[in-house]
């Protein structure tokens, strides 16, 4: 139902986001082959995960993996403004759901400060068991592998989720005014796949 004009605008916005990506952070996430030289399989696995950690511990991801049930914002992980609560199903409370503000797409505000409101369908907070803020990469790794905490996912499902999930992918298209996660979701997915293939070893906690 989008008019030609807004499709064009959206395409333009997307284009400019991609340009930023290529320019600033496209190089900063190394693809799995960069780790081929690591001979020890366990060490290679750890190195791959450590590289993927640049994404996992990026503010775009950490902000919605808080320890408390309130998300944070910005590159400094300050409290979400306005104050909100993840609610019973991590989609906000029934009376003030995430969708009160977060639509299916990033929305331009044309403001001179906050330039866009992030959006994705769905928009949600990570469950409490998947809190990452303040965790070491080793701890995040262990948590990711633990079905009791990762939503009862197999490693294959974890790979699928991280490589394909739309909300995860938002981290690379976070809307004007936000630094995207490094690299691309594809490279990130490849890193995770390679990590799993190499035994899914974790860095020291």
């Amino acid at each position: 139902m989008f008019s030609h004009r807004s499709v064009a605008t959206a395409a333009l916005l997307l284009l400019s986001t991609n340009v930023t990506l290529a320019d600033s952070s496209g190089e900063s996430l190394r693809a799995p082959k960069a780790f081929d030289s690591v001979r020890n399989r366990t060490e290679r696995s750890v190195a791959l995960f450590t590289e993927a950690g640049k994404v996992l511990q990026h503010p775009r991801c950490l902000n919605c993996h808080p320890v408390e049930r309130q998300p944070t914002q910005g590159d400094d992980l300050h409290p979400h403004m306005p104050p909100v609560h993840g609610g019973p199903e991590n989609r906000g409370t029934k009376e003030l759901p995430c969708t009160s503000c977060h639509g299916p797409h990033n929305t331009a505000t044309l403001g001179t400060g906050l330039k866009s409101i992030p959006g994705s369908d769905p928009w949600a907070l990570a469950p409490a068991s998947m809190a990452w803020q303040g965790f070491s990469l080793g701890e995040i790794c262990a948590q990711l592998k633990d079905p009791a905490r990762n939503g009862n996912r197999t490693l294959a499902q974890i790979e699928e989720h991280l490589a394909k999930d739309h909300l995860v992918g938002w981290a690379w298209h976070p809307g004007e005014g936000r630094t995207p996660a490094p690299g691309t979701q594809q490279i990130f997915g490849e890193l995770i796949a390679a990590w799993i293939k190499t035994g899914a070893h974790c860095p020291k906690p």
């Binding site: 139902m1 807004s6 003030l96 969708t99 009160s100 503000c101 639509g103 929305t107 505000t109």
Partner: peptide, 10 residues
């Protein structure tokens, strides 16, 4: 409840 200032009509 929705904040209409950032909810596009489309």
């Amino acid at each position: 409840p929705r904040r209409s200032c950032i909810t596009t009509v489309g």
